[in-house]
């Protein structure tokens, strides 16, 4: 008995080494941080509800209105896009939470605790961005699939529903999840660049919503060339049914959107590394 205790003692000590900071540990820490804030839960819930709720709502409304639609409306009706339209609201929730992931730490002073625990700093940014992107991708891909299926179930009462085997359907459903994932990364990057909640949220909204609206005012000879490269316009090429004139093709458009996020994250990394906390 006593031998057993003696044998175990050094092992117990080995079980808690003077632990080094590893990326896996930083990920674990950021995961704890993410899941222990109520704002994470509520904002994610809002995004999922928006995505699925509007899929159901628009499905029901359009199924109801179908007999009264004009021939033109019927001809251009896009059942897939209709059921996924909730992404427009969901992107706001995702973008806001992305900003909060970092600006919340600056606002409360938590960032100094975080960075003194991980003095190399960058692992904190990569862990936050990576975790949040994965969580967003899983929830929003599942959400858009549910939105699609429930929307089509409602539309099929009029025999106007689409199925996943229809051209573009899989791309648009997965694309919605991917688009929102990149919005999440953009939000985290902007949060780290601006370090302020109000300013960060305004910047994300400005980039995604205001910029395309402003650009509408450009003379069309310019707008035709510029607008398709604006972040949200480029990203939403992946979720559009038809590749129209003066829009980017789905995957190139999505890559342009990714490039914005990567550039913003790179800027955030440089700033985090260089600036005083």
């Amino acid at each position: 008995m006593s031998t057993l205790t003696l044998d175990r003692a050094p092992e117990a000590r080995r079980a808690e080494p003077r632990g080094q900071v590893t990326f896996a540990r930083v990920l674990r820490s950021e995961w704890i941080k993410m899941r222990t804030l109520r704002s994470t839960f509520w904002t994610m819930l809002a995004a999922v509800v928006a995505l699925i709720g509007f899929g159901i709502l628009f499905g029901a409304v359009d199924a109801n209105r179908w007999p009264h639609m004009s021939a033109h409306e019927k001809a251009t009706f896009d059942p897939i896009g209709t059921s996924l339209q909730g992404f427009f609201l969901a992107q706001l929730a995702i973008g806001v939470l992305g900003v909060l992931m970092i600006s919340g730490e600056y606002a409360t002073g938590m960032i100094r605790a975080s960075l003194s625990a991980v003095p190399r700093r960058l692992p904190v940014l990569w862990a936050k961005a990576g975790l949040y992107a994965v969580v967003t991708w899983v929830l929003m891909t599942a959400g858009s699939l549910i939105a699609f299926l429930s929307g089509q179930a409602l539309l099929s009462s009029r025999h106007i529903g689409a199925s996943l085997s229809d051209p573009g359907a899989v791309r648009m459903v997965l694309g919605t999840g991917l688009y929102l994932t990149v919005v999440a990364l953009l939000g985290v990057a902007v949060g780290a660049l601006v370090r302020n909640t109000a300013g960060g949220i305004a910047t994300v909204f400005g980039l995604l919503l205001v910029l395309p609206a402003l650009a509408e005012a450009l003379p069309s000879s310019w707008a035709d060339h510029i607008n398709q490269y604006l972040p949200s316009n480029a990203g939403q090429s992946l979720t559009a049914l038809h590749h129209e004139a003066h829009t980017l093709a789905p995957w190139p458009g999505f890559l342009v959107f990714c490039a914005y996020a990567v550039a913003a994250l790179a800027g955030a990394a440089v700033l985090l590394k260089r600036h005083d906390a």
């Binding site: 941080k33 222990t36 804030l37």
Partner: peptide, 27 residues
């Protein structure tokens, strides 16, 4: 302890410490 409020106000004391501990594998 650089300032008492280097703590996210929305997190519990226990989870705050748990998150810090996790960075270096403190049980």
């Amino acid at each position: 302890m650089l300032e008492a409020r280097a703590i996210h106000t929305g997190r519990t004391a226990y989870n705050h410490l748990l998150a810090l501990a996790a960075t270096t594998g403190i049980p």
